[in-house]
Design a binder for these strands. Structure first.
Lengths: 160, 160
DNA sequence: ACAAAACATATCGGAATAGTATGATAAAAG
DNA sequence: CTTTTATCATACTATTCCGATATGTTTTGT
């Protein structure tokens, strides 16, 4: 029941971009350094985000990535489902359970469905903007310069 | 984010026991046959349930297992956590995140915590008795003899 | 004694995870 | 027009986890 690094790092990447005030194309190497993650690994992850249209890229010198939509348009669920494939606790709920022996009778599925709904409710209700707001509120609470770099970079938790 | 077979099969085992009207010690082989699962694999799983005191066993001829407590005393969360170790979506929430670089600052953890709470709310609120009730309600709705064995065995979904 | 069943380990193939490694392509700067 | 920076594209790999099998040993009622 763990979210993989792909899912978590993807959130971290997009949140890092959202918190970057320059609102310019950001080289992935910079994000990797800020977050203390492998740049090459992040390339694989951001490639998926790129193909899905979640980020826009410019190649070559002074290139990089930026979010293609406003932060309120991304939910945690969108990002996680893109990377993880599905967030349902059992396969049965992914593909209509067409191969089940007793379709519709299985009482366990009723429990899994409740769990699945609860998970979806949470991840679909939290937007990237929400997380930005949480971060800004925390920065303010700390006086704005509690961090060694004055809060310019927001190193996130990446230890699963 | 998937529940493993150990967690799901453990639920199936305990639900199978709960639905068995004989209220006697049930040989695991019988459960394996009813549920269409590997008996040897179930032995490993039931061994954990046994050590945790969730089931009681009698060895030897005509031995077997039975639930050691009334069905309302088992929650889905108890069973799943026993088998899976933890249901939290990130490791960070398991051990107080003592090794985090920016403990308490990390804004992603706030999101993971919400998800974790939602998951716990669901699994801790569903008891084995609830699932038994759901099954009995369904049996009644079907007239009691819709199944080929008159509803005596309740084959559950085990396809993840 | 025998058969049925719990109990105890060891082993194992496959898949997923979490990355590295290597290189090709593109574009701006000097 | 070369160099630097960066995206883009695969290939590879080491480790862990999953989902079992396999091979017994021990207990116990008949």
């Amino acid at each position: 029941m763990k979210i993989s690094t792909k899912g978590r790092y993807a959130v971290n990447i997009m949140l890092d971009m959202a918190l970057d005030k320059t609102s310019d194309y950001i080289p992935l190497k910079l994000i990797a350094e800020r977050q203390g993650l492998s740049g090459k690994y992040l390339e694989q992850i951001v490639a998926v985000l790129n193909k899905a249209g979640y980020v826009t890229s410019i190649r070559g010198f002074q290139g990089g990535y930026k979010l293609s939509k406003p932060t309120k348009d991304y939910t945690l669920g969108m990002i996680l489902r893109l990377m993880e494939g599905s967030l349902s606790p059992v396969k049965c709920l992914d593909n209509e359970c067409s191969y089940c022996i007793r379709e519709g009778i299985c009482v366990t599925v009723k429990a899994w469905k409740r769990l699945d709904d609860a998970i979806s409710d949470v991840v679909d209700s939290i937007t990237l903007q929400d997380m930005v707001d949480w971060q800004l509120a925390y920065d303010k609470q700390q006086g704005g310069d509690a961090t060694e770099d004055g809060g310019k970079s927001h190193r996130l938790c990446h230890l699963g």
